[in-house]
Design a protein around this nucleic acid. Structure first.
Lengths: 343, 343
DNA sequence: AAATAGCACTCAAAGCTCTAGAGTGCTAAT
DNA sequence: ATTAGCACTCTAGAGCTTTGAGTGCTATTT
């Protein structure tokens, strides 16, 4: 869907989009000439605006109001008009400072990153932690908690720790648990978690193990531990978008908040954003989350030393400050990648 | 502040409070007689209402509107009027089912409990996990992640796992790490986490250890692990209170949401609710969180097998369905205690 | 022919007035 | 002590008008 526009039309469209982003009010023809010091008269602008409307780039809420950009206009703006603001020294500093204060472990760091994205952009920050499943196995360990309760602890190369309480069919001594641990650590060394899953499946079918009751127990326990699917996702700064005039209405807000409460669904939806490299921009109905709520999503991937991939970005209204948010997301993704790959 | 009221005044006050809870509209004198089939006339009710207003139990937004209960009235209602609805079989079932599906570990179970509280009450559910600090030490373990990076994993008796990435001054072999782990496990056996903290402090001052570089390293690492303060708190169903007519205003909402984003502050504030046993009710400005937002808080403690204490409850508008929420909170707290103490 | 000035027209938002009716407080009657 | 009756109060909402921002068309300029 290529849009061909004259130089002049582009200037005017840009002016309208930017005005609307700044004010959230329909933009009139004279507002364009006034605020952007263009050389043509408002009458000319009106002609152009009528054109743009016909092309589906603008709409007007009613005859005597100004015009509002459509999704198509935002798309065009983002693709070919926007002049990216370069990120300020101050902002860089803040991102670095807040992302570095890694706290205790990956998950805290990513949460803080999400907060930072939110506070710099004034929209919602979002971070999807790298998938545990595709991370590399590091260590498994069983700790006896009750007579027949064992806590399985699984550590990946990133330093992500998952734990699961397992009910066992009989009681195990600490020594037995250590033994089982050693066996499994050997078995899964160097595999990714998902490969480890398969390996365990295979071993369970192995006849040798089926008759060794302890080994089969060990495999069963580790299977439970390895199938945990708690992939983390951090959405921060939800309160901030209540500021946006388009979300004054309580009903719409509820929609949005509900969508963000079910984090597991969210994860599914966001998976598609992780395929491409670089900054991805989803406008309005293109957004995988809540297509009808007038939201836009700007994301970028980041990578870790164990080659797993995470996602970070900003969610805001379609009428979003693209020119400043895009560089922030871009810079943050690069920085986080850099931190996480520096072993 | 005891309030003495005649039988009749009490009846009328109860009717007004309940009407207002149901409708969120100011209650007029005739509404009281109509909806509650009382024997006196509206004129009588008017006299009584004037009294109640003078006593600070009612206010009217303006002359020709009905009356609204004050905080004081809710307090009195909760203390001496409310007829608690007994919890239905259906609700019990749901609570049991959802709390039991303990998922993998305490933290998931508590999150689901919070969700359950929210969906049954239609307000926000809140659960504060038992303080890690007062739980009993179970196990510590060090896992080598990079050349000078070690992951310390700390498990408490109720199965809570905390982990922290520690930078070490030199590289350690896996054997050394195991050795250090054994030493520390012995040292802290049977202590609570906070006692363990003190023990480590003490050992660090012990001259014997100061000259054994490995022991002093071990102590340092464990000290870092033991001082983690990530107490969990689950607030679920925030979207639900957008339904309440009193929160239609975006400004108020923002206040509230912001308050709940800073979970660490929240924890501090909620500590005071954990001192007393049984169901605690905080109305309006009594609520430790966001005193001015017209919220009420209903909480109850729960206990675990290792004698640590957690808190669960419901947060909603002052105009809350106390008669049904109180039994829900009470029942849930008892149930969770039962589950967590059944080893 | 392209750009612009001018002008009549449109329409929502804001202000204004009026009315209906819900609710009160007082007084007189029971 | 209670209640019926009534005058009074005050808001929410309906209907109306005004205002002014903004448009589209046309005639005029370049």
């Amino acid at each position: 869907m290529e849009v061909e526009l004259s130089q002049r039309s582009r200037q005017i469209l840009e002016a309208i989009v930017e005005d609307y982003i700044a004010t959230a009010e329909p933009v009139g023809s004279s507002a364009v000439t006034r605020r952007h010091a263009l050389t043509f008269s408002s009458a000319t602008v009106r002609n152009v605006m009528a054109n743009l409307e016909e092309m589906g780039l603008l709409t007007s809420p009613h005859t005597s109001a100004g015009r509002i950009p459509t999704e198509k206009a935002y798309r065009f703006y983002v693709d070919s008009l926007v002049a990216l603001r370069s990120i300020s020294r101050e902002e860089k500093k803040q991102i670095i400072r807040r992302c570095r204060q890694a706290g205790s472990g990956l998950s805290d760091m990513l949460k803080e990153t999400s907060r930072t994205l939110s506070s710099l952009s004034n929209y919602m920050g979002i971070v999807v932690a790298p998938s545990f499943t595709s991370d590399v196995f590091r260590h498994i360990e069983f700790i006896r908690l009750g007579t027949r309760k064992v806590l399985a602890i699984l550590v990946s190369r990133n330093g992500t720790v998952q734990n699961k309480l397992v009910e066992t069919v009989r009681e195990f001594t600490p020594d037995e648990l250590i033994h089982m641990g050693n066996y499994l650590n050997d078995l899964m060394q160097g595999l990714t978690i998902s490969q480890a899953r398969e390996r365990i499946q295979a071993e369970m079918k192995n006849e040798k193990n089926q008759f060794d009751s302890m080994m089969s127990q060990a495999l069963q326990m580790s299977q439970q531990a390895v199938t945990m699917e708690r992939d983390d996702i951090f959405v921060e700064g939800q309160a901030r978008i209540l500021n946006q005039p388009e979300f004054n209405d309580a009903r719409r807000m509820q929609d949005i908040f509900q969508a963000f409460e079910q984090k597991s669904d969210l994860l599914q939806l966001l998976n598609c954003c992780m395929t491409a490299e670089g900054v991805q921009i989803y406008i309005g109905s293109e957004t995988p989350v809540n297509r009808s709520a007038g939201l836009s999503l700007i994301t970028s991937r980041f990578v870790t030393s164990s080659n797993t991939v995470g996602l970070l970005g900003v969610i805001g209204p379609t009428r979003m400050g693209y020119s400043s948010v895009i560089p922030i997301v871009d810079y943050t993704a690069r920085l986080v990648s850099r931190i996480l790959t520096a072993t």
